[in-house]
């Protein structure tokens, strides 16, 4: 039984959500709201951090200094996005070290998309175009998320994602104007990334049990299927300009609905990849774990240096 005090706090919280106002860190909030947000924000942060790996793999093999500088900036942004989000998660009382611990021990998840390998440099372009394009579809509505620090982090992230998507599309345009082999490389990358990109929006609405509560709390603003449709509608004309085909025989304009019809992604594959059995899951988590452990001496040294400086300052004062 909630106490009268809790009931009053709960009513105030509900009224804030109803008025479309933001919830701020020190406000009272239901434990379910806090827990759902910590899970979602942490999962989002982990995705940014793990997302550095598939593209980072091509920094040393970028075909020109220009492409290398762009890729470095993009991967640095992803580290930044991860940190904005961990910062937001901390305002909910989560501990950054613990979140990393949960990631490397497999207790918290990250986006399924980063468990696919980047086989050619065209993959870098396709990740920018499709994967970051899907991320933008997902993230723009989150700029209006009911939790203030999360919404503000999303505003910063969305501004930067626009560069990510455009550099990818430009890269692909350049390759499409190149040799036949380069055009084949782009088509091959599109064929491999199209379905995993559609899966980024999560399971179909009928199979997404948390969606309803998250939408009531305004943590989430659209359902998975709504966002997936929006992404398909946006992307088809872009594919036409690029001159690539999307690997879906059922893809067709439906004038009655005013949307593109498209085929069903392989949900069994999504389940497999989420539960740890994708092409690169073990490699991604192992890489993150070893980077964290190999960096331990740096963190310890910096802490020791800070303690020494503080002691000196105290002795001098």
């Amino acid at each position: 039984m909630p106490t009268a005090d809790e009931q009053r706090l709960h009513e105030h919280f509900d009224a804030t959500i109803d008025r479309d106002q933001r919830v701020e860190p020190r406000d009272w909030m239901p434990e379910g709201y806090r827990g759902t947000l910590v899970r979602q924000v942490a999962q989002h942060a982990h995705s940014e951090i793990i997302g550095m790996q598939p593209e980072g793999a091509w920094i040393g093999r970028a075909p020109s200094l220009r492409r290398k500088a762009i890729l470095l900036a993009k991967v640095q942004d992803e580290a930044g996005h991860g940190l904005y989000l961990y910062s937001a998660a901390e305002t909910l009382g989560a501990d950054r070290g613990e979140l990393t611990g949960k990631l490397v021990s497999g207790r918290q998840k990250y986006s399924s998309i980063f468990n696919y390998p980047t086989l050619t440099f065209a993959d870098i372009g396709v990740i920018g175009w499709l994967v970051d394009g899907a991320a933008i579809c997902n993230q723009v509505p989150l700029c209006r998320s009911s939790y203030g620090p999360y919404a503000r982090a999303m505003v910063r992230i969305c501004k930067e994602e626009s560069f990510h998507q455009r550099q990818g599309y430009e890269l692909l345009l350049t390759m499409m104007r190149g040799t036949a082999a380069q055009r084949e490389m782009v088509q091959d990358a599109v064929d491999r990334w199209w379905w995993p990109s559609l899966m980024m929006f999560g399971p179909p609405d009928g199979d997404s049990p948390n969606t309803q509560q998250s939408m009531a709390w305004k943590i989430k603003r659209h359902t998975n299927d709504e966002l997936r449709q929006k992404f398909v509608d946006m992307t088809v004309p872009q594919a036409e300009v690029l001159g690539v085909s999307l690997p879906d025989p059922e893809l067709a304009w439906n004038a009655e609905r005013g949307h593109y019809d498209f085929g069903e992604p392989d949900w069994a594959e999504l389940k497999r990849v989420i539960s740890g059995d994708g092409p690169c899951n073990a490699e991604r988590v192992e890489r993150r774990r070893s980077a964290h452990e190999d960096g331990a001496w740096v963190r310890e040294a910096a802490a020791a240096h800070a303690a020494k400086q503080a002691a000196r300052k105290e002795a001098g004062a």
């Binding site: 901390e90 950054r96 070290g97 613990e98 964290h292 331990a296 963190r299 310890e300 802490a303």
Partner: peptide
């Protein structure tokens, strides 16, 4: 995994 916590929050 918690040694990071000894770095204060700014």
């Amino acid at each position: 995994m918690t040694e990071r916590s000894s770095w204060p929050l700014y």
